[in-house]
Design a protein around this nucleic acid. Structure first.
Lengths: 130, 130
DNA sequence: ATAGGTGCAAATGTTTTGCTGTCAA
DNA sequence: TTGACAGCAAAACATTTGCACCTAT
């Protein structure tokens, strides 16, 4: 039997935090927020649930440009901007290149499931500070 | 004074390995290759040089989709395909979207220096195995 | 009732770093 | 000559996991 998914208090809180922030938080930030509601939640549980939710396609793991992952409560395809100064990740409002996967598939013979597009540079806040 | 760059035997070997492989090797793989030429080279030295070369723009660090980085001896802009089964990274022969950075810059007010585009899926070898 | 989830802490795996000695310029 | 770089090993860091207990179904 496929493993069923239980809706625990911990998972509910983690989903809630993730769906209600526009930032793309780290596991640690989510942990700190979650502790405000469930003081003895453990970091391991946060990681376990983030992995589960990622596998279920409920959230996205953004694991580029840094040594740690960030998570995105919006699983719909969209692109990102990474600030190289402060490390923050922003959504980029650009239409999806929906034919690109097929194009690469035709060219390579590989099975292409999805693609990611990230922009790197300096965000507005950091631009003004320098 | 800006730190000058010394061409050590170690650095030379690492550059040579990286420029002569089409794979996108991990630090550990580079280390193993380098040991065939300099048996007592240390992993720390490999990492130090990889970081240095990345900062100098000589090579690219590919740090997505996995817990460890891969390195690319070709610093010219190009896109990648990541196999989710075997973890290998392939070059994708697609023209660069050269106006995209400006487009995002205009839209966000951020300073956009570059972008990355990666495709995810199953490579030909892994497709045939399943 | 029971299997999937939790908290805790130890383990893991990759990458970085402190120190002392070495070598490229 | 000398300061950037090497080797070595320990530390740092994010993330995963083993275990005994707990709880959603």
């Amino acid at each position: 039997m496929a493993a069923t998914t239980r809706m625990t208090r911990q998972k509910k809180v983690i989903i809630d935090i993730l769906k209600n922030t526009k930032s793309h938080p780290t596991a640690d930030w989510i942990y700190e927020q979650a502790r405000k509601i469930i003081p003895d939640i453990s970091l391991g549980t946060v990681y376990r649930n983030l992995r589960l939710l990622t596998q279920m396609g409920e959230i996205l793991e953004l694991n580029y440009g840094s040594s740690y992952s960030r998570f995105d409560g919006n699983p719909l395809p969209h692109y990102h901007f990474v600030c190289e100064k402060c490390g923050r990740v922003f959504d980029v409002d650009l239409p999806i290149f929906s034919n690109l996967n097929q194009e690469v598939e035709a060219q390579t013979g590989f099975l292409v499931k999805n693609h990611r597009l990230e922009f790197y540079g300096t965000c507005l806040d950091c631009r003004q500070k320098s």
